[in-house]
Design a protein around this nucleic acid. Structure first.
Lengths: 112, 112
DNA sequence: TGGCTATTTGGCAATATAGCCAAATAGCCA
DNA sequence: TGGCTATTTGGCTATATTGCCAAATAGCCA
């Protein structure tokens, strides 16, 4: 792989990796609805505050979310709403997979 | 997080994790242009055949690619072309990040 | 069948990621 | 200032991922 192609894919990978965790996907989905502070997200996720804080720092580091300090709290917002379109695509893959499974099962039954 | 929400995000995560590797992103991009066999992809990527094979099995396991044996070779194809739209979105994030960096740099210069 | 090419699998070591606890940091308000 | 709440950071262990080599498997063709 040529070096500039590799670099491009590495940059993309950084963004995608940041999304590749259930809690972080949850955060992205919540932030697509409204801004939240760490506290709120922690309560919703049900993990240690430090864990959620680290997830947020991964997302921030990838440029997926922005943070703004207001008073005592830090509010996070989603920076690129197109991210949610991607989730739609992932759902597409999942439903394609599900259909495939159904087809295989139906086929097995018929042959019994 | 409620259990069904968690399950949903875990399913999505599996798909996204499968994409979260430079070589696998490269494979996805190549397959979006045309079908390829392991051999061709291995040559393009420049890693061990077994490594590329394992990457392909990750993608296949996630339902992102399909394989078909023809003669001596196994040809891989992309199952959900919408995946490439996602890459567009990732590029969006990257360019937003780049603009942000530029803005910060310009700001620093002005203040010198 | 035997040799060849293509691909997958098993095993192992190196590295990265996740999540918890404890401690540090930062801002609010009495 | 001191106590309180919100958040981040450091450190640690457990687990997952990666990539190589070697070996196994599968199909082609002479």
């Amino acid at each position: 792989m040529k070096s500039h192609v590799k670099t491009r894919h590495e940059a993309r990978t950084k963004i995608i990796k940041a999304m590749a965790h259930p809690s972080r996907l949850f955060i992205i989905e919540e932030l697509s609805k409204r801004e939240c502070c760490v506290n709120e997200l922690t309560a919703m996720i049900g993990a240690d505050t430090s864990t959620v804080s680290k997830h947020l720092s991964v997302l921030k580091n990838a440029g997926l979310v922005a943070d703004e300090k207001r008073g005592n709290s830090i509010f996070y917002t989603l920076r690129c709403p197109c991210i949610m379109d991607f989730v739609t695509c992932v759902e597409d893959v999942l439903s394609t997979n599900a259909k495939e499974q159904t087809k295989i099962m139906r086929c097995c039954k018929t042959r019994k």
